[in-house]
Write a protein that binds this DNA or RNA. Structure first.
Lengths: 238, 238
DNA sequence: ACCTGAACACCGTTCAAGT
DNA sequence: ACCTGAACACCGTTCAAGT
């Protein structure tokens, strides 16, 4: 997970606009790494500065020398999750396969840490890794012939889908136990909701992998359709 | 906003599986309503039991007679937001227009309260309103000829998209100021990311309405395409 | 440069006791 | 049935002072 990061050393855009100043206070990465371990053990709601300080065998106040406040630490954690992810998206296959691998990659990255998606939501980072990922996606769709507005629009759409999906997936995995699931199932056979009743067996399906693929396919079908419409228009003009 | 709820009184599935017991301790709705007001004023992070108690001119401990814990209150708030929303989706138009209106309705519902989307995320409620909404969507797509698996899959996909979108929209509106936006713009002209550089003008576009419509259209295009493929298959078989 | 000690102004939650 | 008083075990953050 962290071997990749060594290999990219020297690219230096790592700490945002402050990059390239000096070799970064060594301690910062250690804190973030320990914070991520703690996240996996206790979850986002129980991740406190004091608990983290305990782990690092330091006073809580010490953390405020390295981070302005808790939010800045959380932002750094979100960045580190993305950085640690498998960022060599396969170049093989047509663009639909590449886009699919891209979306799956983001989902797996967020799934790799407890509450990873929730942590990531609302973190508007623009560090090297975010831009790198975006560049890969954008160039794939651009080379497939899609115009700028579509590339950007599709990028956001896929990102929002993956984010919403993974937030709900992780919430389900941690908060919804078998009891709760059974309760949901019991509510359904209500004559007031005939269509839901009809769909009962499908609504009880919690195969997140299959569910994710269905939505991703729908988005790609939409892109294919958009591409076809664009070709037809161009055909009429020329 | 709350007149609608009066009109539906007597349907009684309101408090989940405990419904139909007795006329519900009057106080509960008042607490939730005040909590929503507080949410709009201070945001989700600053919504505390103690502050809410102050507003109701009561001790914080008193809230624990009405709600098991804070999470139960948050769940009730999420339910109330959905309940207060405009739930008579227009019956006019073809199914694509109805699905569009449906998704827009959910987005507007979540936007109606500060951090509404974040509050809603991970709240697996199955109250009357959730089921009612789902029923409307499912029947629309069912009547359009889509098979059960597609109806359910498309429902989840649209939900995840709307949720992810609105979370990021609200986070942007509250946390990202002009300064931050300018900083994001400055990072882009990097020769390392040629495609992003090319898309610069489009990446700086923060028109969320337009962005939302693009993604929604993409999903509907995908559904139309899926429908066409299904018709072709059926044509070959018969 | 980096950390401690101690404090400030808060949290969510419990529970005996009141009415 | 509904609420108070008081406590418990925590929070994030600041800041003088240490090394």
């Amino acid at each position: 997970v962290s071997r990749k990061r060594e290999a990219r050393k020297g690219k230096m855009a790592r700490d945002g606009e402050r990059a390239g100043r000096k070799p970064a206070p060594l301690q910062r990465e250690k804190i973030v790494q320990e914070a991520l371990n703690l996240l996996n053990e206790v979850g986002l709601d129980s991740l406190t500065m004091r608990r983290l300080a305990d782990r690092l065998e330091v006073q809580a106040a010490a953390l405020y020398w390295h981070f302005k406040n808790k939010q800045e630490l959380l932002d750094a954690m979100a960045g580190a999750i993305l950085a640690a992810s498998n960022d060599d998206i396969p170049e093989a296959g047509d663009w639909t396969q590449r886009v699919q691998a891209f979306a799956q990659g983001i989902r797996q990255t967020l799934l790799a840490y407890r509450d990873g998606a929730k942590l990531f939501a609302g973190t508007y980072t623009a560090d090297y890794h975010t831009l790198h990922y975006t560049e890969i996606f954008a160039s794939t769709l651009s080379q497939a012939g899609y115009p700028p507005a579509s590339v950007v629009g599709a990028g956001w759409t896929i990102f929002y889908y993956v984010l919403g999906f993974t937030i709900e997936e992780q919430a389900f995995l941690t908060y919804v136990d078998a009891d709760h699931r059974a309760k949901l199932a019991n509510v359904l056979p209500d004559p007031q909701f005939p269509t839901l009743n009809m769909l009962r067996s499908h609504l009880g399906n919690w195969d997140f992998d299959a569910r994710f693929r269905y939505g991703l396919n729908l988005l790609i079908k939409g892109l294919l359709q958009e591409g076809k419409e664009r070709m037809e228009e161009e055909g009429q003009i020329h």
